[in-house]
Design a protein around this nucleic acid. Structure first.
Lengths: 119, 119
DNA sequence: CATGGCAGTATCATTTCCCATACTATGGGT
DNA sequence: ACCCATAGTATGGGAAATGATACTGCCATG
């Protein structure tokens, strides 16, 4: 579990906001989810996409997402091992949330992507 | 500044997600923003609404929101001091984001609000 | 035989976050 | 003179999150 953002989720209605953040907080969860929306991926694939994540962290974040019922972990008993991560139904309900976050980030958070042909 | 979630925001497109989270992460920012969407408030008002936040923390979170251009701080030179916090235009663009977070929380994150007349 | 890929664990160190408490300044009320 | 409210700042400590590095076991490849 990441930091328990609030001991009790009773800070009037606003706290549902925090309740949601509790699930996608964690330095990599947002990006992990984002990639899993594209499709199911195996561990090494995610690792390559995230580049700067350590193995330890990626495992930890995936375990939390799994514990929270957002991601499913499927082990294929092969050699070499193959473990696939996919979104659960509950995980898929986060799609609009992640997309809104991404859209806002694209519009307001990033430095502005090189005004090449911008009028 | 809260944790710099990522040194560089280059983790492929997914990182816009993290870019956004960078602004609303911090134990109280989500709720602060939520309340400021209702209306401008002074420091003590916010404090009462958040109840369990410490003065130090509230100040810190507000300062970060201000630094990020999401919240404006207006000092009225009176006695006793009056300082009002309001959303900037940029801050208001977060409205859909916060609302999506809140809605997901209401639907999926909270324990389920007492199945009184639920069939 | 040595190396590399897969999917992890284990251990240790650091960074960051958050809390509790005490303190400041001004003026009003009693 | 003393206490209250407002809006903070200062200081110190402890917990949580993240990072770096090394190690495991199996097989295929060269």
């Amino acid at each position: 579990m990441p930091r328990t953002r609030h001991a009790r989720l009773d800070c009037s209605p606003g706290c549902a906001v925090e309740a949601t953040l509790q699930f996608i907080d964690g330095k990599w969860k947002g990006v992990i989810l984002f990639h899993l929306f594209e499709r199911t991926m195996r561990f090494s694939e995610l690792r390559r996409r995230l580049a700067s994540v350590t193995q330890r962290m990626l495992t930890a974040q995936l375990r939390e997402l799994e514990r929270d019922g957002l991601v499913a972990r499927t082990i294929h008993p092969e050699i070499p091992p193959r473990v696939e991560y996919s979104l659960t139904e509950r995980g898929r309900t986060l799609h609009p949330v992640i997309m809104v976050l991404k859209d806002w980030g694209d519009m307001h958070a990033l430095p502005a992507p090189a005004p090449s042909a911008a009028a």
